[in-house]
Nucleic acid binder design. Structure first.
Length: 559
RNA sequence: GCCCCGGUAGCUCAGUGGAUAGAGCAUCUGUCUUCUAAACAGAGGGUCGUGGGUUCGAAUCCCACCUGGGGCACCA
């Protein structure tokens, strides 16, 4: 449990004050609109502000500024709030007490690594399913965006008090896998000098040949001697396992880890597939037509129906996905599920939501976040990321070239809905100059101050925080205090991309403080302020570490 | 043709109903005898794709159009 957010407390005080104004007869309302409290962009407008009077002015036909005054007078200063002001055209601005801000330095120090935790989720179970690239090849740059987004979102949800499971759905069944198996076998046979061809729509990538060579080295030519069907089965298993472990390693190398790797095939062996189809059939959501089995999603408002079982008797990917979502939402009782998909799956969203509804589940328990495409560039050259053809630019290649922190930061800083340009040159440059290192450098500077203080044997445990009165000090404290609020907000709207922007602002505030406020001073008369500032530095260190960790970035003490 | 997502500073992007539209890069000007100059302070740079509309108030909401990407399979 963590303390209620200040922003919510202020919201409540506005609610009380407007009620008081109603009792007074100043304003009369049937319904009170939602009270919005925000952080004003301009610091002259205080620490928090509400636009409630502006929003009420039409219904009440009262001048918004007068309304602001009428409400504001019912908000009295306390330990936290220094004063409130009605400001034109009709805002109520809140100014925090300096003594309260100062006290938060000790609060942060006491919270330690828990600072930033909030109770938005109240222990609710949520799954974030992401990446889930078919185990037919390595993870490429396009997938990296979803990987970074998903892992950061999971971190944020965890900090916000959700019980989070990070899952990778392994599509180890179906047609694409057969193609993959055949491709591997063909390359293997070719390595042994046999006439063999990659099937039409098979996998042409160079990595298949490498894979075949590896298998040959370890397993010898034994697959040549067995019946084709058996060879396909055995070599396929080995190939798939190798690909999955490559995917696992590559993702792990950029700090993306999963709690669970869920096999599509397990949905069939467990009997859940049959159960689900039977259920949908009973509910009349299925119909047979043209020799195939259809899901009647038009009934639920979609553009068209979708095939569940093909004429050939094979089930479709969509069928497995329905079963999988039933598994997540019913069998495993996740209260909500977030799926992160690429833009090429965008058309799949409405039918998936309909399927969830058909299963008798509130469709809002499933949220699908769509990541737009990534264009990879090197300066002027646009690099094509082709899927089956060949030249994949893999996650590993990009991570090796630009570094994992720059890679994560660059992907994370953009909202998933934007089609982004990933310019290798630019990202490398950014990692050397800004803003990735800008943030890490702030942390490193922080750390070196503490180190110096320790070397000099300074004891700051009794530092007097009321000495922290410089504007740079107070602004830094304000910035530190925004983290819990941000975690709450990001967890609610599922947008971790605010994290890098916050980190940059935080670093800006820190560098400013560093410039203006000497911490470790050799001057005897400065012992008191040094101790106080060391407490602030310690608090800042905590917040930087937490912020970088939420982003999945490294936290260097020295640069 | 229909559906989804974009178009904000020279470039890459934040900002989705409020107070003078922001950051980084790039350009220009200052600042290192003192905890890391990978930094700080400052300057220039904007018809927020276009045109209508709603509103006290629009980059943000609605409509139309222009433009870029993605999707409209018994593929995944």
């Amino acid at each position: 449990m963590s303390a209620p957010l200040l922003i919510n407390t202020i919201q409540e005080s506005v609610a009380y004050a407007s009620e008081a104004a109603q009792h007074e007869g100043v304003l009369q309302l049937d319904t009170m609109p939602e009270i919005q409290v925000e952080r004003p962009g301009n610091s002259e407008h205080g620490d928090f502000a509400t636009n409630l009077p502006l929003r009420l002015s039409r219904a009440t036909r009262i001048n918004p500024l007068e309304l602001a005054q009428a409400i504001a007078k019912h908000i009295s200063p306390n330990d936290v709030i220094d004063h409130v002001e009605a400001a034109p055209p009709g805002f109520i601005n809140f100014y925090l007490k300096q003594s309260w801000l100062q006290k938060q330095v000790d609060v942060i120090r006491q919270s330690g690594s828990k600072f930033g935790d909030v109770d938005t989720g109240q222990g609710r179970k949520v799954m974030v399913e992401f990446v889930s690239v078919n185990p037919t090849g390595p993870v490429h740059v396009g997938h990296t965006r979803g990987a970074v987004l998903g892992s950061a979102l999971a971190n944020v949800l965890e900090a916000a008090g959700f019980e989070v499971t990070r899952e990778y759905y392994v599509n180890d069944a179906g047609n694409q896998m057969q193609m993959f198996y055949k491709s591997v076998l063909a390359r293997y046979q070719q390595e042994l000098g046999q006439e063999a061809e990659i099937p039409e729509n098979g996998y042409m990538g160079e990595y298949i040949t490498e894979l075949a060579k590896d298998i040959l080295n370890v397993e010898g030519d034994r697959f040549l001697k067995m019946a084709e069907e058996q060879a396909l089965l055995e070599i396929g298993d080995i190939g798939r396992e190798k690909i999955v472990s490559t995917i696992k390693d590559d993702l792990s190398s950029i700090g993306v880890e999963f709690d669970n790797w869920f096999s599509e095939r397990s949905l069939f062996s467990s009997g859940e597939y049959e159960e689900t189809i039977d259920f949908l059939r009973e509910k009349d959501y299925l119909s047979e037509r043209d020799g195939a089995l259809w899901f009647n999603s038009v009934m639920l408002g979609d553009d068209k129906d979708n095939v569940i079982v093909k004429t050939s008797g094979e089930s479709t990917y969509f069928a497995s996905d329905i079963v999988y979502h039933r598994n997540k939402l019913i069998k495993r009782k996740f209260e909500s599920v977030v799926d992160i998909w690429g833009a090429d799956h965008q058309g799949h969203v409405p039918r998936m939501k309909s399927a969830v509804e058909a299963l008798g589940i509130d469709r809002d328990r499933l949220t699908v976040l769509i990541c737009q495409m990534v264009t990879l560039r090197r300066g002027q050259d646009v690099m094509r990321v082709s899927k089956r053809g060949g030249n994949l630019i893999t996650l590993r290649e990009v991570a090796d070239e630009v570094g994992i922190d720059a890679c994560r930061y660059s992907f994370l800083a953009k909202a998933p809905s934007t089609q982004m340009e990933f310019d290798l040159e630019m990202v490398k440059k950014e990692s050397n100059e800004n803003p990735v290192f800008y943030v890490q450098y702030a942390h490193a500077r922080n750390a070196s101050i503490i180190e110096l203080a320790r070397e000099r044997g300074i004891d700051w445990s009794n530092g007097d925080i009321s000495l922290l009165t410089h504007p740079s000090e107070l602004d830094l404290i304000r910035a530190l205090l925004r983290l819990p609020e941000l975690v709450d907000e990001m967890a609610t709207i599922l947008e971790p991309h605010h994290l890098p922007h916050y980190a940059t602002e935080l670093a800006n505030n820190f560098h400013n403080f560093y410039e203006n406020c000497r911490v470790v001073s050799s001057n005897e008369s400065d012992t008191a302020i040094t101790a106080a500032r060391l407490k602030l530095v310690e608090a800042a260190l905590i917040v930087f570490r937490r912020t970088l960790t939420l982003m999945g970035m490294t936290v260097p003490n020295r640069m």
